[in-house]
Design a protein around this nucleic acid. Structure first.
Lengths: 337, 337
DNA sequence: CGCTAAGATGACAACGTTGTCAAACGGTGT
DNA sequence: ACACCGTTTGACAACGTTGTCATCTTAGCG
């Protein structure tokens, strides 16, 4: 390992026998550089281990090389998957990934966003629920012409990168799975109705019921709020309202944990007496006992792609494709084998 | 809100009738500026809403204004508390907070660290377990004279900022609490022995037993690994080895969840038949049912202070105080009221 | 009251890139 | 061979700060 003093664009230019501007062009994928020189410069740069200085780039180009994820979601597992996906993509391109929790004021995230933008420059923004549903936030971002991506099951925007899974179809398929395992009396535990994801998962649930020709009265909906506690509470209500239910679809894993704990505490065996499936494939789906069958969405991949496309957009200054749908997978575990 | 074109140091200098260098001095808390001028400049800057351009500062000063947290801990709740504390402190000082998961190679984080440092400049580093225990990593950081902070119960370094709680004392006090609630037959579920924190918490457990003059045979140690599953498993062993235990201290909340779930599944009531206390006060301590009595450490505050002190160190170029101990608190909930 | 040294201030050159614009090049049609 | 035009290349001035060093103040002292 050599004591390499800091390399600059000039060192590369000299070694390659071109001007610094040409080197700059190569590193910015700018047009109008002969392929031969491009290769030459890249070769020299690779040999010497050159990397452009971020600060100088920022200063000269008035770009920040920062991609920010604005969120307000207590699910830290979800957040860190997003962060990891962003970080990977950013690191590949010499960008910085930053995550910022927005604190709502009077029900809107607008002020918190403005506070942030006043202090830091940002080249691109990633929004996830519930921030992605705040129209005031989107308006501010669009007015500033900041490229942005929505990782969200909500409304799609023409002028944004939309990354999503088909929530309804996912709800449908995991319900189909429950039915295929022989369950004829089913329950759905909803999340917060304000979240589009919960509503769409539920729609999938009812579609599956419908298609399987299970009588509507054999299916029941219990209101939850995504919390473990609400899953726990749902169990009591379930025992009163529909004691012969054997298959439960919880709109997220936390509620699945809640209902399983409640079931065990009341002498029910899982999955023998009660089968439970969750959604998100979060770490406790693996860590609980019994482990939980869950629908996995590739959050990391989704964040990675969002970030990549965002950076492309920043460079190209124009957005081409705007919708990216990801597919999901049912991870079969003990709670519904 | 005015359409403020970008303010530079020159605008402030002109408005205040001083040179740009003086403005620069003021913003860097440099010595040798008359108090009167300092106030004048700060006043003008506040009125106009000026903030120094980070990139230009980075370029000119060869500092990066980035503080990185290197970690490899699957506990995302813990990580996001650290990140939040860092973020707050950084944002106050115009720094960037960055979190980087290090992937070990051949048991060491050294290579991953070097890969990172090759790509990005960093002004300060925060390490938490298990990275903070990697001597090769610390050696590399010290050789580069990068200020660093250890949020860790492990060995204290003279040449670093050490932020920690007294783990042994914390283990002692929560065990004291169990004993005060009348429990005379106790169990400790350990975490990974490679983690100093687990060993120290256990030491506190035994000290409490000792001081309370509880016969050693009435206390038992069960080996866990911090996972929910290991807590679950511990229950079976406990029932065989020491069925009359009524008070359990799990070295973290996850294992507390595991043992509670197992207990409920076996018809035991918590806390009536079995009282359980955890450690960390993580989100499920609140979300589980029953909610879990747990020992809380102020992770957010610890990260905030680490970052502040790190930034002070960067500016002063010298480290004064090196040890910062934080106090803990027992959060009483249903699992051991 | 002048002298000195320490403290306060400023002029100007870095820092390492990108933007701008002019110049050189190379291919085409006459 | 020449004029023309698009493509490629480069010289040099930004970008907004901080570092260096010279100069101007001021307080203290004989």
């Amino acid at each position: 390992m050599s004591t390499n003093k800091k390399l600059t664009i000039e060192d590369i230019a000299e070694k390659a026998g071109v001007s610094i501007k040409t080197v700059s062009r190569v590193f910015n994928n700018a047009p109008n550089v002969r392929q031969q020189k491009r290769d030459l410069v890249l070769g020299v740069a690779r040999d010497l281990g050159y990397r452009p200085n971020i600060s100088a780039r920022q200063l000269a180009s008035k770009r920040s090389f920062v991609i920010s994820h604005f969120h307000d979601n207590p699910n830290t597992d979800y957040l860190s998957e997003i962060y990891e996906g962003m970080r990977r993509a950013c690191s590949e391109q010499g960008y910085y990934a930053v995550a910022e929790k927005l604190v709502p004021q009077k029900g809107s995230y607008r002020q918190a966003l403005l506070d942030y933008l006043l202090r830091f420059e940002v080249d691109g923004v990633i929004l996830s629920p519930p921030v992605s549903d705040d129209t005031a936030v989107i308006k501010e971002i669009e007015e500033r012409n900041i490229p942005y991506a929505l990782i969200s099951p909500g409304k799609k925007k023409k002028s944004a990168i939309n990354v999503f899974i088909d929530e309804k179809n996912a709800g449908r398929s995991i319900t189909d799975y429950l039915i295929a395992r022989g369950h004829q009396h089913l329950a759905f535990i909803s999340g917060l109705d304000s979240h589009a994801a919960s509503r769409q998962r539920e729609a999938g649930f009812w579609e599956a019921i419908d298609v399987a020709k299970i009588p509507k009265k054999n299916a029941v909906r219990l209101a939850g709020d995504f919390s473990m506690q609400s899953g726990f509470t749902a169990f009591d209500i379930l025992m009163k309202k529909a004691p012969n239910v054997t298959g439960i679809f919880a709109a997220n894993d936390k509620m699945a944990v809640g209902i399983i704990v409640a079931a065990l505490g009341n002498g029910k065996k899982v999955p023998q007496d009660l089968s439970v499936v969750g959604f998100d494939d979060s770490p406790f789906a693996r860590a609980m006992w019994p482990t939980i069958t869950s629908l996995a969405q590739p959050v990391d991949e989704m964040a990675h792609l969002s970030t990549q496309k965002l950076i492309e957009w920043v460079h190209a200054k124009t957005l081409d494709q705007s919708r990216f749908e990801f597919s999901t997978e049912i991870i079969i575990r003990e709670s519904c084998p």
